[in-house]
């Protein structure tokens, strides 16, 4: 008698599926509560991307305008298409008296970046991270070349060079 129970079970499961999708439909039709579509140019002021969105590479700075980058160039080496250039220099460390590398400019070519994230994984001191800004439109490609460390910033104390 599995013939008839198959029919009844089949109908039941189909109706269960229809109840689920019908619930989605009516919720979204009347309230638009769960609609995830972003109407981009219209909500440009309020749109916030989710935490793990890969918008661009940024360098983290604290409130004293200090970053963690010690110019080790591991991110530059990790980058498969040369989007990162690091200009470093050496100076005498006042504490130890030894020569130490420090960062002058962390140059990031957004126009070449594929957002693969290898640089961020390579960084041993978590100096760079993903930013959520996605609005990168410019009229000149040179404007997409960015210096990630803020002007006047210096390395945080306690980061080994």
């Amino acid at each position: 008698m599995s013939y008839f129970s198959d029919i009844i079970n089949g109908t039941k499961t189909l109706l269960t599926g229809m109840r689920v999708t019908g619930g989605y439909f009516f919720v979204n039709f009347f309230t638009k509560r769960d609609v995830i579509t972003q109407q981009y140019p219209n909500n440009i002021e309020t749109l916030e991307m989710f935490d793990r969105f890969k918008g661009e590479v940024i360098m983290l700075h604290n409130e004293n305008n200090e970053h963690r980058c010690d110019a080790c160039t591991l991110c530059e080496k990790a980058c498969p298409n040369g989007s990162i250039e690091i200009l470093g220099d050496k100076a005498k460390d006042p504490e130890t008296g030894k020569n130490k590398r420090f960062l002058v400019k962390h140059i990031y070519h957004l126009q070449m970046c594929t957002m693969c994230g290898l640089c961020i994984e390579a960084c041993p001191v978590n100096a760079i991270d993903w930013g959520q800004d996605f609005h990168h439109v410019e009229y000149d490609r040179s404007l997409l070349t960015k210096v990630l460390n803020k002007p006047g910033s210096k390395i945080m104390s306690g980061i080994k060079g």
């Binding site: 999708t21 989605y24 439909f25 979204n28 039709f29 638009k32 769960d34 609609v35 995830i36 579509t37 109407q39």
Partner: peptide, 10 residues
């Protein structure tokens, strides 16, 4: 339109 509402779109 209806497909969109089923799939949480507009």
């Amino acid at each position: 339109r209806i497909a969109a509402f089923f799939q949480f779109r507009l």
